[in-house]
């Protein structure tokens, strides 16, 4: 599902390139290509549910962030302007969770990018056992996040887990409670996040790598450029649109992710892994403060959108220069 988004994003960029003229052919279709009305008729069954149950709720959700809505029957909902946001400003727990969310999202995205780039480069080589690494790199995709979390709970289990087992075997203290300890919980969760997101990033980068012109590489090699120089001056620039697209999407997905960490730690220990989504979920469905939780959602959107704006703009600029 997720690669589709990547592809949509990459191809959005690519379609700006000049298109071959298509109009004459469409005209010749006569009765097939005529109707805007026909198109609407065919699209309507898809459009109505999407508008009713995702566009409308989304707008409603944004508005809800400016009200004092609470769970429960017969509650009177009133607009309270920016009260929620004033209250949020003073909510240290929320900002702490926000900080954790940013560390998580950037940590996972950056580590995953380097890990996936390395793997994609290897998979792009002719190398034995490539099929194995390639298959394994795709498997996390097929697993529900809940099960990925369960699996890593086994891995990180303080007594039974193989990680501590390995540490004990080589004579190190092997009794760390990875997910329960204040200092290790967040890093451990980030590692799991990297594992879970490897497929999309690797496959997208691999597809990008295979698009890099072999002729350019050959020419550079003849001119005496070594592998590192070729990577730096040919591969990386050619890969750039793909890198921007996938890191952007990864960042959004990670910032908004929920199930993985919910099952791994439920935000514990002591809120050390309380991602903003978990925080907002608790606020809404545990304490029933719908309006306040929606306000948190709005803040998350604004921050993500602002970041994306600057990131994409800087990338667009450096591409032009």
């Amino acid at each position: 599902m997720t690669t589709e988004a990547t592809r949509a994003m990459v191809s959005e960029r690519e379609t700006r390139a000049p298109k071959p003229p298509k109009t004459p052919r469409r005209k010749s279709l006569g009765n097939i290509g005529r109707g805007g009305r026909e198109a609407w008729l065919l699209v309507l069954p898809a459009l109505i549910p999407v508008v009713l149950f995702s566009v409308y709720p989304l707008v409603q959700g944004i508005l809800l962030g400016f009200t004092d809505a609470k769970a429960g029957l017969g509650q009177v909902v009133t607009f309270n302007g920016v009260d929620n946001y004033v209250k949020l400003l003073g909510n240290e727990l929320f900002w702490n969770s926000f900080r954790i969310g940013l560390i998580w999202a950037f940590g996972v995205t950056i580590l995953q990018f380097f890990a996936a780039l390395g793997l994609a480069l290897l998979l792009n080589l002719d190398i034995k056992f490539r099929w194995l690494a390639r298959t394994l790199a795709l498997v996390p995709w097929a697993m529900p996040p809940v099960i990925i979390a369960i699996m890593w709970r086994l891995m990180l289990n303080p007594t039974y887990g193989p990680i501590n087992g390995f540490l004990r075997a080589i004579g190190l203290p092997g009794d760390t409670n990875w997910l329960g300890d204040f200092s290790t919980a967040l890093p451990a969760v980030i590692v799991v996040g990297v594992w879970a997101g490897m497929p999309q990033t690797t496959i997208t980068l691999l597809a990008g790598l295979q698009n890099v012109s072999a002729d350019l590489h050959e020419a550079a090699a003849i001119d005496g450029a070594n592998a590192l120089q070729r990577f730096w001056h040919i591969t990386l620039p050619a890969l750039r649109p793909v890198i921007v697209a996938i890191t952007t999407l990864d960042l959004i997905w990670n910032f908004n992710s929920f199930a993985l960490v919910y099952v791994l730690t439920a935000g514990g220990p002591g809120g050390q892994t309380m991602l903003p989504m978990l925080f907002a979920y608790n606020e809404a469905f545990r304490y029933g403060n719908f309006g306040y939780a929606a306000a948190m959602g709005n803040v998350m959107v604004v921050v993500i959108a602002a970041f994306l704006f600057f990131y994409l703009r800087s990338q667009a600029r450096s591409r032009l220069s």
């Binding site: 988004a5 999407v50 995702s54 709720p57 409603q60 959004i252 908004n256 903003p276 948190m296 994306l308």
Partner: peptide, 23 residues
Amino acid sequence: ATGWILLSQVFPFILIIIPLFLV
């Protein structure tokens, strides 16, 4: 349609789920 696909990725589910829950 493309715009909506990309846009819907950015919004955290919490914004959608509360009104959806109410509806």
